[in-house]
Write a protein that binds this DNA or RNA. Structure first.
Lengths: 193, 193
DNA sequence: GGGTGCATGTAATGGGTTACATGATTCT
DNA sequence: AGAATCATGTAACCCATTACATGCACCC
């Protein structure tokens, strides 16, 4: 809801563009689906927080360009001054790892490797975005804040990658132990026959 | 849903105890409310994934002790072998910081300080839990996995604290710049009078 | 007397994702 | 010809939190 106001405070745009802009600016820590964006824009418009101009297009449906109003800016500021409450994120990977005993270690190794690859990619993306997007908008007063948010993501990703390395080493140790144990079991079974 | 099975695979217990156990074992990356736990236990029981024994108590309501069944263990294993899909966590602090331009810098400083304090506390808790809970259960085959999950939280918290330091320094720079600018404005207004 | 902890549960409410529907244009 | 992109939106559904309801025991 308030992301929409925040982005529209930077620049008026359509619902579709809001989706794209949100994805590649705050996408690494906040996302909104179109099933959320369109109804919320309508609601914000009906309550006077945003205004809407309709632009005709040939072939395509009309574009609705939304702009934030004074009332909208006030609402945004009011929301910004409410202390954010801490939220416990849900991490399915960690949960599955926590119960990892129940499952072959190779599976867990796959999960951690996959996560590491994803986060490596995300880290690169964040670094690139910082260089290209934020540094090219140094004149804009919001740029320092964008940088802080981007840095958060970068530092988190690097921590995750370090953890993944450490954890993969540990998992591989466990895997080889397990293999040895099952080999011994096999031998005993052979001997017992 | 599956957390319940996972915890019950370690030890049978009541819904109430599940809530407590989840909070202080996987609480830093997963949480379930009682409004979720009780109905889900009922559902799991009706589908044969857990069994339930009722224990009478004087004064207090009957305790329902749930145990995982063979069918439940199979379901847990099946779930564990489904690759976790990456989830984008929502971070309200970062979002507010991203739009920080719109609001006095002091407010943002307060948010970041508060977050740093919280995460410092959480880090200590995680370190303590690792020493007390996990190391005391070294015999249990799940312990190494618990340790990995705990380490994830620790490394993340430490990264957040480093970020908070860096960010606070930056925010304080911005705050002093802003103060100077507003002093100049004040002087000009006086001179203009 | 009032707060906290034990112990269970239900119901309203809200938030969000997914799937669906439409339809033209552009790329492969 | 078929997929993808542009562009809007609705509706069903799922999930989750919150608040409510009950009631005893214990402590200050």
């Amino acid at each position: 809801m308030e992301v929409l106001l925040g982005v529209l405070a930077i620049e008026p745009m359509s619902g579709y563009d809001l989706g794209l802009t949100i994805r590649h600016s705050v996408g690494h820590f906040w996302n909104e689906s179109y099933g959320q964006i369109y109804p919320n824009l309508k609601k914000l418009a009906s309550e006077g927080f945003v205004s809407c101009k309709t632009v005709r297009q040939k072939g395509k449906p009309d574009r609705h360009i939304y702009s934030i109003t004074e009332k909208g800016r006030e609402r945004l500021k009011k929301w910004l001054t409410v202390p954010p409450q801490p939220e416990i994120p849900r991490n399915e990977l960690l949960l599955k790892l926590f119960f990892g005993e129940q499952v072959p270690t190779e599976i867990l190794i796959g999960y951690v490797e996959r996560m590491a690859n994803e986060h490596r990619g995300l880290l690169e993306l964040l670094e690139r975005t910082e260089r290209e997007e934020i540094d090219n908008n140094q004149h804009y007063p919001g740029a320092p804040y964008w940088k802080m948010a981007a840095h958060f993501g970068q530092m988190e990703m690097r921590a995750h990658l370090r953890w993944a390395e450490e954890t993969l080493a540990e998992l591989k140790k466990i895997a080889s132990k397990r293999r040895k144990r099952s080999e011994i079991r096999q031998e005993k079974r052979h001997a017992g026959k």
